[in-house]
Structure formats: C-alpha cells, structure tokens
Design a protein around this nucleic acid. Structure first.
Lengths: 347, 347
DNA sequence: GCGCCCGGTTGGATCGATCAAGGGGGCGAC
DNA sequence: GTCGCCCCCTTGATCGATCCAACCGGGCGC
C-alpha cells in the first residue's frame, strides 16, 4: 500500500506516513510496527532497531484519531477555563493551567480548554464526554452548589477536583486541594514572630467556605498564642476598595499593627489605606496577602503573600488521574497540600 | 445493532450510543442520520425532526475519534503555552488564551495547550502535526529569530501568528497584531492633552522590535507636537527595579512631568520611584503603562494603561484560521488592530 | 417514452491503529 | 522422531463515522 503515488507531482498537502508505510519499508507487518511503538519488548532487538530506524527515516508518528478510535481514549484532559476577573489580583487559575499543562505532558496527556457557559455549566462537559473527546476532566470550581462534580459522578466520568467538596458530605469524588488554613497560620505566626500582637483579619463573606477556612487559620493561631481577636476581623467583598475600607475601619477602631488578608486583592486595599494615611507598609504596619500573585510580586514595596504550591497540585492531580484511568483503586479520596509563605518588605 | 445488551445490568462504564443505534431507533438508515447531523438540508423536515428527536432522546453525539479519522480533521487548535514570567506584570498570554478559547468555541474549535520545551521549540509542534492531532496552530512568540513560523511554513502546517514577522521580510505567513505605536501615540497624546510637555519614555532594549515600535509611537507624537525628546528616553530590562532606576535618572537629569512606559512592569518601577520621592502619581507626575494588566487595575492609585484588544485579536485569528482551513485564498496577509487607553488616576 | 429530481435506502469501502487469533520455525523433553 | 511450547511475527477483523455509488418509486417536463 505504498503512498508515493499520492505525493508525486503534488501541490497537495503532504500525507503523513502510516503504519502500513513503515511496515512495507521495513519489511515487517503492521502489527509489528505497532508493537515496536507500544510494546517494544515483544520484538527481537534487531527487528526493533530496523523498525525504529524506518520510523525515524519516514518521520512517522501514529495517527491520533485512529489510535483514539481503536483504544477509546484520547490522551486529552478537559479543563473548563473560567475567565479572569478583571479588577482583582486573582490569577490562580492561570498559574494552575501552566502547571497542569506541564504535568500532563509528562504523563502523555494534553490539556483541552473549553469555555465556561454561565447559562449551563454542564453543557461543555456533556459535549466532550458524550463524544468521547476527552479521557477525563479537571474540575476547578467546587464552590457551594456547583453541580458539576455531582453531575460528572453520576455520569461516571473520570475527574479530579482541585478543591474540596466543602458542603457536600456525600460527595465521593477524588480531590486535591491546598490547605488554606495552614497558609494563614503560616502568615499569622510569621507576624507574631516579628513581634506583632494585634493582628487583624480581612476576609471574604461568610458564605465562602474557602474564606472561612483561611480565616480559621488566623483565628486558631491567634488563640494558640493567647492573642486577642475580638474587633480584629472583617468580612467583605473581594474587591480592592472593600479591603481599603475594612482596613480604615479596623485601624480606627482596633489599632492593629498587622493585617492578614484572604487575597492579594484585599491586601492591595489595605496598602492603599496605609498609603493614604502615610503609614509605611512593613515598618509601621505589616500586611500579608494570599496567592502570591503578580501584583504581590511587582508592587513596589513587595507584598508578603501565601503561595499555593500549584505545581505540586497539578502533579498530584495528574497522578491521581492516571490511577483513575488505569482503573486502579484510588486509595486516598483527598490530598491536602501545604502552602508556603513568600516574605517581602510588607511584613 | 442494538446496544441495550451492553447496558443491561452493567457496572461497566456506559457505552455511548452510535450512529447505528440512532438509525435503528428512528427507523432510518445510518446515512440519513449522518446527513441529519452534517447536511440537514438533504432531509425532509419531518424526517429531520424525527431523527433529531431520537438523537436528543439517546443523548447521541458523534464519536470524535471516528469523525476525526474519516474527515482528517480534529477541530483542535494547538497553542504553545509559555509560562508566565514571575516578577513581571505581563500576563497578556493568559488574557489572550481566554479570548481564544471563547472565539474558537464559537467556530466549533477547541484549544489544545502544549508546553514550551525550551531546548527544542519545534518538537511540540512536530509531535502534534505529524500525528494530525490538531488542525492548525496559533503562534504567539514571533520574536527575532524564532524558528517556529519558518518551520511551520515549510511543513505546510496551517497557522496564524499573533505578532508580526518583524525581522523576516520573506515570511509569507498570515498574522494578526496590535499596533503598539498607535497605543503609545494614544498615551502620549493623552498626556499632551493634559498639558504635559516634558514626557519621558522608558522602554525595552533596542533588540526588541516590539519595544522599538512602541517607542516610535511616543517619538512621532512628540515630534508632531513640536515637543523635545532628547534626554527623555531610556531603554532598560523589563523588570521593576530597572524601571525605577531609569525613572530616577530621568527625573534628576531631565525633569519630565510624565512617563510613557513600554510595559506595566516598568510603570510600576516609575511609581516606586515617585513613592520614594514623595511625588504623587497623577498630580505631580503622570504615568502610563502598557497592557492594562491586573497590576494596573488593582494598584491603589490606578495605573493608566494601553489596553490591547485581545478579544478582537482572538476573533480575527479564528476567522483567518477558518479561511485557511477551508482552503479559501486568504486575501490579507496581516491585520493590525488598534489598542485603546484605559485612563485611571495615574495620569 | 425518456430523462431527471426528490428523499431517501443499501452495501461497501475508507480512515489508521489495535486486538485476537493463528502460524511457522526452533528448541527441549519424552 | 515427534510432541508441545515459546518466540516472533502475520493476518483478518474491529472501532464508528463518513463517503461513494448505485438504486428505488413517484412526479414532472419535454
């Protein structure tokens, strides 16, 4: 089944060589070439070498579609790519995607992005799973009442969540998450070690379990060190000016010397208030943010911030995914990773 | 060829329905179902309706792999995902990816990400193209001497570049780009309108054609308004402290009242110097950045910045890609889009 | 009466890799 | 000598959608 005829005198797009082309050229059967690629152990060394050489000469690479059809796999991991929120410093998603792409590559997977359809959060998943376009999903927004995880479980679609199923006790899916409380514990202890005793908290509204988790880290560390917390906590929207307002109120009413914030966005608000009041971040008042965003990195003073180990999260997720897909029993239902603290001049 | 037997009493993963299943259930032939999906015009309205209903009932969706194999397409667009540079404000790539994902979806494409292998920038492309895993690429870093575009052209692989082929006069590929000079022209004129006459430029080193383009916008606008430029320009590395140093030197030597910067990163450096010198951004000295990054958005004062129309870029790229893939002759070799200026308190 | 269009049906081939079964040759054991 | 077995490789069928060619009977125009 030589293909040279297709190529002769053609301005046509070049047809890549197939398994059969390699087989013919190397003087073996298709299956042998297939084995050379997928089960090299089955070949005699000299045959293997000959086939490999031919593969290299022809620049052969197995056709993805054909392989996918036969094996009923795609080597693709689906990820719903949610838009960045403008006006905030939150870009965790973006950094995570980078890590996931790299971790996936090492496991032989590629990442397929699909957009978020706010009207119907399920449709994107449904399309991909019912057309067997992806092998599995990585689900990122496991917030309250998000139907994705439940729906995917019911569909028996393999997936791993980045984020705990906070509210849902019966959720039986596998997840990887970062211990937010441990992060704020680090931050708070760091400030205590620096001699601060009046350390305030600015976090998100109560309906955010992630926010409450981070808050708990601050609270427990304060209590463990016998430090006061009354009048030192505030819960606001995750936007800069809310952070600024909260900081102003707290400074007036409770005179904190340090702030731990649930996000870099809020921390920027605090810095704004300090700037207005001519207070020097790090010297007069310490500030710690959360996420180690680009904002924290390039802000002139340098914002100390809790850094999520997204690279590790991605590696762990891919590892779990592989176990799921190879139908191994996954031993652990959840993995919790420890964040670190990136210390800069603001503390 | 009913599949109900596969489903009965199964703990097995559910096998999705196939074309034949739909055909049998709807009492038509496979070909008709295929036509209902791909060429609805060929069916009588009532037949079409019946088939569509059956498709909906069964939740049928054509198997991607089978379709890909037969049609030799994948509906996938490959994008090499380069890591964010930590310590800078540059996240253009991330915002662009979001836009591209959305624009692609509307055209029936999905975006496949693959990581950058610094040792061999070609290998990632080669793997995907030779295994016919993607239909086309979007290439983002068309900087000096980047071999990707040339290589892809030679391979006859369809692709559209985000970025002009600056150095390469013989490059024959299609591209979409943002007019950087127009952006800095906007910024400079904005400052002139505000009454500034001594407007400084802080840009990148001379070997960056993008940087030189942006610089040209500042230069031409200054000249057009009969304003001086000597001693008012600086070329540095794209990091915060370089921007800060450059600003300090310029302030000492040339007393500018405004700065136009090639990036938000450099603008942050300028703001840092202003802060040290107790100068108020926007009141004492105006600053304009480039990219409208999250940093510009959440920085307490609010950084005026040139915003690239990445949504439009993505739409234009996808449009061009579709033309390329449908073997239409693409009329325009390049498209240049106009940025806008997001004005905040720093100016 | 011939040819053609319409809205389908039918059988088969096709895409390229993989799976399951089988086969020839060599070797050791009986 | 031959039986069985393993090794290495070949062969035919398969995955599911699509494409192709041929064909159907009724209606229409010439």
């Amino acid at each position: 089944m030589g293909r040279s005829d297709h190529r002769l005198g053609s301005q046509l797009p070049v047809t890549p060589p197939t398994l059969a082309d390699v087989a013919e050229r190397a003087g073996v059967s298709r299956q042998t070439v297939s084995n050379a690629v997928n089960n090299p152990d089955l070949l005699r060394p000299d045959t293997l070498e000959r086939v490999r050489q031919t593969i290299a000469e022809l620049g052969y690479s197995p056709n993805r579609a054909a392989r996918n059809l036969r094996t009923r796999t795609s080597s693709l991991i689906g990820l719903r790519f949610t838009p960045v929120q403008e006006g905030t410093a939150n870009a965790t998603m973006d950094r995570f995607v980078h890590s996931l792409v790299e971790a996936s590559e090492e496991a032989g997977y590629h990442v397929l992005l699909f957009p978020a359809d706010d009207d119907d959060p399920i449709s994107g998943y449904d399309n991909l799973i019912s057309s067997t376009a992806v092998d599995a999903f990585v689900v990122t927004d496991t917030y309250l009442g998000n139907p994705q995880a439940t729906w995917l479980s019911r569909q028996r679609a393999p997936f791993v969540a980045f984020g705990r199923p906070w509210d849902d006790d019966v959720a039986r899916h596998v997840w990887v998450d970062v211990d937010g409380a441990a992060g704020t514990r680090l931050a708070t202890q760091h400030l205590i070690d620096r001699g601060h005793t009046r350390i305030a908290w600015i976090g998100w509204r109560k309906d955010s379990p992630i926010g409450e988790d981070r808050r708990a880290g601050w609270l427990s560390t304060m209590h463990a060190n016998g430090l006061p917390t009354t009048g030192l906590a505030s819960r606001v929207e995750d936007v800069v000016h809310s952070g600024a307002e909260a900081a102003a109120v707290l400074l007036d009413e409770s005179r904190p010397t340090a702030f731990v914030c649930a996000s870099d966005t809020l921390a920027m608000g605090v810095l704004h208030t300090l700037w207005i009041r001519q207070l020097a971040p790090g010297r007069d008042v310490a500030v710690v943010g959360f996420d180690d965003s680009q904002v924290a990195q390039v802000y002139p003073v340098g914002l100390t911030s809790v850094r999520q180990p997204l690279e590790d999260v991605a590696v762990e997720i891919v590892r779990t995914l592989r176990a799921l897909l190879s139908h191994q029993q996954v031993e652990t239902r959840g993995v919790l990773l420890e964040p670190t603290l990136t210390i800069r001049q603001s503390s």
